[in-house]
């Protein structure tokens, strides 16, 4: 093996990280501005749980952090911040995505549904009810992501989207236990509530 220099440095020469914002025509129309801290922000408008929300954000802000830190919708969780756990799953324009791997500015004009938009403690979504009934959680941290994922996942089955375990691509797919487990695999639950989550989803899928 080569003996590279082991006096590791964090970084070599750096250029300034505070680049000047040059704004494209489409965005310029919405007037970006400087915040008090000197960072440049962009206005972003999207619909969250049925309400139009306008934010001024550092372009680096992920959809996840926009929800959690700016809109204080903390039901959506940060587990890994790298698309490797699924805790941040939200539904955008009807499709589930990892909100940690999406910039908020990518979602201008989008419709975002978070766990708070599915139901509240006094008015739970059927899947939230089913999770309680089947004890489909333990610590609860992955739970909002699991529920958002499951809601959208059932929609994917309804739309005939196949999965890795779908046997025959020419036939209709249904929410079998195997299909549900495969399709929910992007939502990790370290407490290991998988069997109960599958039972909760089956309850709702069967109506």
């Amino acid at each position: 093996m080569s003996d590279w220099n082991l006096s590791v440095t964090r970084r070599g020469l750096l250029t300034s990280s505070a680049a000047v914002l040059s704004i494209a025509p489409a965005i310029r129309a919405r007037a970006a501005s400087q915040s008090s801290a000197g960072a440049t922000t962009l206005p972003v408008t999207f619909e969250v749980n049925g309400q139009e929300r306008m934010l001024r954000l550092d372009p680096r802000t992920t959809l996840l952090d926009a929800l959690r830190e700016h809109l204080k919708l903390t039901g959506t969780k940060k587990g890994c911040d790298h698309g490797q756990c699924g805790a941040c799953t939200v539904i955008v324009n009807g499709e589930r995505i990892n909100s940690c791997l999406s910039l908020a500015v990518q979602h201008a004009g989008d419709q975002v549904t978070t766990i708070e938009g599915l139901g509240t403690p006094d008015d739970l979504h059927p899947l939230q009810e089913a999770f309680i009934e089947h004890d489909g959680y333990q610590c609860g941290y992955c739970t909002p992501g699991q529920i958002c994922s499951a809601v959208a996942m059932l929609g994917e089955i309804e739309r005939g989207i196949p999965s890795h375990v779908t046997g025959d691509l020419s036939k209709a797919v249904s929410a079998t236990n195997m299909e549900v487990r495969e399709r929910m695999s992007g939502n990790i639950c370290r407490c290991g509530a998988y069997s109960n989550i599958a039972a909760a989803i089956a309850d709702v899928a069967e109506g």
Binding site: T74, G75, P121, I132, E133, Y141, P144
Partner: peptide
């Protein structure tokens, strides 16, 4: 017995450490 904290956890209202706005 169903968890008494279930409605909070399933609706995203249970406050975890980093979420105490």
């Amino acid at each position: 017995t169903r968890r008494i904290d279930g409605p909070l956890k399933t609706s995203g209202m249970a406050p975890y450490a980093y979420e105490r706005h």
